[in-house]
Design a protein around this nucleic acid. Structure first.
Lengths: 197, 197
DNA sequence: CGGTCTCTTGACGGAGTTCAAAGCTAGTGG
DNA sequence: CCACTAGCTTTGAACTCCGTCAAGAGACCG
């Protein structure tokens, strides 16, 4: 909880009273490694702020192949926004990759905060905006760069994520197979080691 | 102008007085085919609502290859949001593919409307949200489907765009070369014609 | 008409996939 | 605390999808 207070205070200034209102609507929940927070075609009733642990959001294609859309570690939100906001069946699955603690907010509480707490409106506007920008950047990257370049960008941008999740999930996020990611990595290692010889 | 009134009224209900305020901040502008509305690294001072014509937003990669991010025909907004909102140099180029009429709004007017017209806040929230959703869907599609499938989706989703822009721009949007898109198309045609024989 | 831009076609090359097998690692139960 | 298993990583060969290059054919301007 302390972590979330820190986080929202860093984003914008909020009155103590309003902060209390927000905190009152968040519920701490625990999930064991591999548990699902949401399954495809269910309704997303909650969004989640990660306090400790790691969450992945993914879709399954018509061949049953999973594609990771995003990861959220500490201080990041996750959830199927499209389902949550439009009240439509989820297109995403959401799963925990480690034992994880989140703050959950349900739709009723969300709507309440949007109505009653102007800072919450600003806060979510910033969140959505940043999400939109990062999504556009990802689209551009997918169009402009090779898998190897995208992998390097990923390591630069999310070093703390890259260190704690299995390679196969990174591959899936990048849109390549684990085997090919491995080829990229072993090529990097060969080059790296020649730097020391 | 009539077209924009229609459009915003379809999205939400807005008081006549507030609608007048919005309209008063929009400036009609004309661009000849191939003209640029924005160049990379300039500052995006305006966003554009297309009244008539067709606008493409694209980036150039480090090899000078252009990648189309989006097209906007009648009733769609275009502009480099990231540059416009954060006051940072543009990462996109924006160009007109036909003789085009737009409604332009600059930053001062935008800020004014956000402050003074609550319906405008709601309107832009819906716009951004939908943009976010469509971007996420595009990311998912790029991860999950082959070029051929993506082309079929594009034809289904944007038939009116597909009909009026050059093939090479569609190829660029899909992340493939014009040559390969042509291969897909000629394969379709071969199959289509066998249906009649 | 002449020139530029776009579309088409084909041969070749490279990036990334598939499949299969083996080696690792980590969790689990006894 | 060890043994076992399941899942992850590594490797390699064959293959596919898609890119590159080059050259010709239309199509759209002035």
């Amino acid at each position: 909880m302390e972590r979330f207070i820190q986080h929202i205070s860093n984003t914008l200034s909020i009155s103590d009273h309003h902060l209390e209102m927000v905190l009152g609507k968040l519920v701490e929940k625990h999930f064991a490694k591999k548990e699902h927070l949401l399954y495809f075609e269910n309704y997303a009733n909650e969004l989640y702020f990660t306090l400790k642990g790691c969450v992945r959001t993914y879709v399954s294609d018509y061949n049953g192949v999973e594609h990771n859309i995003s990861f959220s570690i500490e201080n990041w939100w996750s959830g199927d926004l499209q389902s949550f906001i439009n009240r439509t069946p989820a297109i995403c699955n959401i799963q925990v990759l480690e034992d994880t603690t989140v703050l959950a907010i349900n739709q009723a509480n969300w709507d309440f905060l949007i109505k009653e707490v102007p800072e919450f409106v600003s806060y979510t506007r910033v969140l959505f905006r940043n999400k939109m920008f990062s999504q556009q950047n990802r689209i551009v990257q997918n169009l402009s760069y090779t898998a190897e370049e995208r992998y390097n960008f990923f390591l630069d941008e999310y070093p703390d994520v890259a260190q704690r999740i299995p390679q196969k999930h990174i591959a899936s996020y990048l849109g390549i197979t684990p085997e090919f990611l491995n080829m990229i990595r072993s090529k990097r290692n060969r080059i790296d080691s020649t730097l020391y010889s």
